[in-house]
Design a protein around this nucleic acid. Structure first.
Length: 179
DNA sequence: CTTTCGATTGCCT
DNA sequence: GGCAATCGAAAGG
């Protein structure tokens, strides 16, 4: 589960949908270049990479892998048992509900910073976990790097309609190499 | 410099 | 199903 303290309150939920992004594939923000904007993605694991998308919504990632290698896990949906099942059922919605924005970019995940992770029996309650392709991207659509809890009602709306990638959208690793 | 478009959401037909 | 909202990178001239 993920926990968050802000406005003098602690809220929590189970992460029920994620996607992985890494430097070796073109959908990743760190694929083309390393800039001030995406620097966090190249930084040390355990920090948040938060960016604005569509000029309106924020997307929250947890940086993974080793320092110097752009990689992260996008949090796409959180189930909050004590609230309406859709309040955090999407990347933008969960960022909003958990009060996270660009100011939290590069923040270390810790109790001191008001955002942290814990294991819980609630985490496995909605299994099995389905692995499939990512959503809302235009490149490397064939990579099966999305995971979600099959039995959760809080999985993002668009995640429900799966489709297999067309051959023209297929992508396979070429020059870039992993860590 | 100008134009395009995105790791989305919500409202409309 | 379609599309506006709304901003800033990235791409194009």
């Amino acid at each position: 589960m993920i926990k968050r303290e802000y406005n003098n309150r602690i809220i929590w939920g189970v992460i029920v949908e994620t996607e992985a992004y890494a430097e070796l594939e073109p959908a990743c923000h760190g694929f083309k270049s390393r800039t001030a904007k995406n620097e966090t993605l190249f930084g040390e694991p355990g920090r948040l990479y938060v960016y604005l998308t569509y000029g309106i919504h924020h997307c929250v990632n947890i940086v993974t892998e080793k320092k110097g290698w752009a990689s992260g896990v996008l949090l796409r949906a959180i189930a909050m048992p004590n609230e309406h099942h859709r309040v955090a059922a999407g990347p933008g919605l969960l960022a909003k509900r958990f009060g996270l924005n660009r100011n939290h970019d590069n923040s270390l995940i810790s109790v001191e910073n008001g955002i942290w992770l814990r294991k819980s029996s609630a985490d496995t309650k909605m299994s099995p976990i389905i692995q499939t392709t990512r959503i809302g991207i235009s490149q490397a659509k064939n990579l099966p790097w999305r995971w979600y809890m099959k039995n959760s009602r809080s999985v993002s709306k668009r995640a429900l309609g799966d489709r297999s990638p067309k051959p023209s959208e297929a992508w396979s690793p070429s020059s870039k190499e992993g860590p």
